[in-house]
């Protein structure tokens, strides 16, 4: 159980974030989507690096304070940047963690979870970034804390590691751990949980992610739409860059993401704000093979390379663009997509 009670942060004249309250019940996963600046400030508070000026952070009854070892026993923290002993072998490294934490977790089981059994005798320095990240996931499992705080847990990792990560999040859920994910990447937030909050200078707002209901609602719209599809009036999608208006051909567009009501068009890794809403865009782009794969995403199906199934209820689309962006696909949309591509 993690309770965040009225913490706030000001920096000189600016409000980084106003007071907010958040309770993370045991066994639930919450993602806080924020800018990197806000994330860094939050991490400083969670680790006790900076004192909590007002309000309190309580992890299973223990207040955050740098001199309170019981808080750090209850709280497992995964940093974005964290080192490993690169000259040790994988097995030796995990063994070291196990002894330091006096943990009873089985080494073999652990290596199985993080998919590193085959590399047990490989030096950590020879592992890839993603594999190193998996050793750091293992530390959380070894510690078995009641609250887990993850800073950008799946940034820049490969698909295998994402799968391992989601598996670990599920395990933590079953162990009744409160999990908080701090990320600047909406896709990574949506992948792990449905309770996503956005934290910025205006405060903490819950993102209304209710795939079941939303799905039905949009589905209804979808059924009506084909009837009312009109001859294409616009062939280009206008975006605004500074004072200029840039027009894009629909096939150029990789995907469109909605961010606080603003739709952003992604073309070859660049983002262009568009004046239309996601609903309007969906209608316009439907004839060009675009697909509303999530409440806040429209994807160009031509660019989809892979449909990744994480668990039975969580999917992602991996695109064929330069950065291989992966975007969320909601459960209800999966069926619709299968139909569209001719699978049953």
């Amino acid at each position: 159980m993690l309770i965040i009670n009225n913490i706030e942060k000001h920096s000189e004249h600016a409000v980084v974030f106003p007071p907010f309250r958040l309770e993370v019940a045991p066994g639930s996963v919450v993602a806080i989507h924020s800018s990197t600046n806000v994330r860094a400030e939050l991490m400083d508070l969670f680790t006790g690096a900076k004192p909590v000026m007002s309000g309190e952070i309580i992890s299973n009854g223990e207040m955050v304070h740098r001199n309170n070892p019981r808080y750090f026993a209850e709280t497992g923290i995964l940093f974005l940047e964290d080192g490993l002993y690169e000259r040790l072998k994988v097995k030796e490294h995990l063994d070291f963690f196990l002894t330091i934490y006096g943990s009873t977790v089985k080494l073999e089981q652990l290596m199985q979870i993080i998919h590193l059994e085959e590399k047990r005798n490989v030096r950590v320095s020879l592992l890839s970034y993603s594999e190193k990240k998996r050793i750091r996931y293992a530390r959380i499992l070894i510690q078995q804390p009641s609250t887990v705080i993850l800073e950008e847990p799946d940034q820049n990792v490969d698909l295998e590691t994402k799968r391992v990560f989601l598996n670990i999040v599920n395990m933590l859920k079953q162990q009744k751990t409160s999990v908080v994910i701090l990320t600047a990447n909406m896709e990574s937030a949506l992948l792990a949980t449905e309770s996503v909050y956005r934290l910025d200078h205006t405060g903490l707002t819950a993102l209304d992610v209710k795939p079941e209901q939303e799905g039905e609602l949009v589905e209804e719209n979808g059924q009506e739409e084909p009837a009312s599809v009109q001859p294409v009036r616009f062939e280009k999608i206008p975006t605004r860059v500074n004072e200029k208006i840039v027009l894009f051909n629909p096939p150029e567009i990789d995907f469109i993401e909605s961010n606080e009501g603003q739709s952003n068009i992604n073309v070859k890794g660049d983002i262009y704000p568009c004046t239309f809403t996601l609903n309007e865009l969906e209608q316009r782009l439907l004839p060009y093979g675009f697909f509303r794969c999530h409440r806040s995403y429209i994807v160009n199906l031509q660019k989809v390379r892979e449909v990744v199934t994480w668990t039975r209820n969580s999917y992602s689309l991996v695109l064929d663009d330069a950065s291989q962006s992966s975007i969320p696909l909601s459960k209800t949309k999966m069926a619709e997509l299968k139909e569209m591509i001719g699978l049953k």
């Binding site: 680790t47 070892p69 750090f72 026993a73 923290i77 940093f79 940047e81 964290d82 080192g83 490993l84 002993y85 690169e86 330091i100 934490y101 006096g102 530390r139 510690q143």
Partner: peptide
């Protein structure tokens, strides 16, 4: 340098 001291400090080791 390798950012591992923080991990030790946050561990239960005194």
């Amino acid at each position: 340098e390798k950012n591992t001291l923080r991990g030790l400090m946050l561990s239960p080791a005194t």
